[in-house]
């Protein structure tokens, strides 16, 4: 069998496309700067609501957040996708090959953020990594980081909470993936990987593709269309609920149940969040409104991590290569790591 990926490229500088990208960036900035006045005008002018009234404030919140988040998603997903075209699963595997545990876990978690990954590819990726001799714990650090540190979640956190919370989210995702990977590695769970995985003959990595700038830009645009097309409805619904909470729920109403004083609030948030598999796009606007009403950051982060990170579909897919015992450890270790991170943030903030 001739197993090569075809690579024939002509290196040309796509000036027309670069021009289009620059024009789009200018249009983006111009639109972004008129959102606030426009939202106020729609809510208080066009719809004639009084400033400071519940309905008026909810509407202004909605008409400001929706275009802002959609624009941020479009712009930032484009940049993130562009960055990701420089990484691939094949490349990541060759970087991780021969790395010891510890260093390997840290590197794997970081590569998990930038390597393009779809949970439907979790199985071939798992087999390919383990086959090439990458330790089980290091493989798990990658498999946990990749879906947990979700680009849509990062953009929404940045847009609704600011860069500090977005940064904390990335940092806690990294910590959770590294910790969980190290623990799984130490537990020596190799015998709980389905036997057929070990029986497969090892394969060399396929050729790593070289892309032209034009292809990178085209691909990034494709993923903007795909991701925004998939999540805009959730964003809309989430912001609508968030706007309702913003206008109608009294301030500090949630400080009692979701505040930091209650020790059980973090585990409770994880317990509720794990089975509630949902899309980050719908959850984060609601969570942002909850925080405004007194919920504490650690509790909120723990809730979000468990909703986004511990995804049911990925777990079901991984069941094909992992025995139930290892699946249980996988879920248990991540849940524990999320709870620890939640406490950590409630304690330091």
């Amino acid at each position: 069998m001739d197993q090569t990926l075809s690579t024939q490229k002509k290196p040309e500088i796509p000036w027309r496309l670069i021009g289009l990208v620059v024009l789009a960036a200018i249009a983006w900035i111009a639109t972004y700067s008129v959102i606030q006045p426009l939202a106020n005008w729609i809510a208080y002018g066009l719809l004639a609501q009084r400033q400071g009234s519940r309905l008026g404030d909810s509407l202004a919140f909605f008409f400001y957040d929706v275009p802002k988040i959609i624009l941020l998603l479009g712009g930032m997903i484009f940049l993130i996708s562009l960055l990701r075209t420089f990484f691939s699963a094949e490349q990541t595997r060759s970087w991780l090959g021969g790395k010891r545990e510890g260093v390997g876990n840290v590197l794997a978690a970081m590569l998990g953020i930038v390597t393009p990954f779809c949970s439907c590819s979790a199985v071939p990726l798992f087999i390919g990594f383990v086959e090439s001799g990458i330790p089980l714990g290091v493989t798990f650090s990658f498999l946990i980081a990749a879906p947990t540190i979700n680009e849509v979640a990062v953009v929404l956190l940045f847009g609704l909470f600011g860069w500090k919370v977005a940064g904390l989210y990335i940092a806690s995702g990294l910590i959770i993936s590294i910790l969980a990977g190290v623990v799984i590695g130490r537990l020596k769970m190799e015998r709980y990987v389905e036997d057929f995985v070990w029986q497969m003959q090892s394969q060399d990595a396929g050729v790593i593709e070289k892309l032209t700038l034009q292809e990178r830009i085209e691909r990034s645009w494709e993923s903007v269309k795909e991701i925004v097309g998939k999540v805009w409805l959730y964003v809309l619904a989430g912001i609508a609920v968030g706007a309702g909470i913003h206008g109608y729920v009294p301030d500090a109403a949630l400080a009692g149940i979701m505040g930091r004083q209650e020790w059980w609030s973090v585990p409770a948030a994880v317990l509720v969040g794990v089975p509630l598999y949902s899309n980050a796009a719908g959850v984060i606007p609601i969570v942002s409104a909850l925080m405004e009403k007194g919920a504490s950051l650690g509790t909120v982060l723990a809730f979000m991590m468990s909703v986004v990170g511990l995804s049911l579909p990925e777990t079901i897919i991984l069941r094909r290569v992992l025995k139930p015992q290892l699946i249980a450890v996988f879920i248990g270790v991540i849940a524990a790591a999320i709870i620890i991170t939640g406490y950590l943030f409630n304690w330091i903030m």
Binding site: L5, S121, P124
Partner: peptide, 24 residues
């Protein structure tokens, strides 16, 4: 999966034309 993994791919979908992997 056992059949898919006979090809050197780490992510799906893979496309094989006349026993030659052209994209993954």
């Amino acid at each position: 999966y056992a059949e898919i993994m006979k090809w050197p791919i780490l992510s799906t979908p893979g496309l094989v034309i006349n026993n030659r992997l052209v994209s993954a």
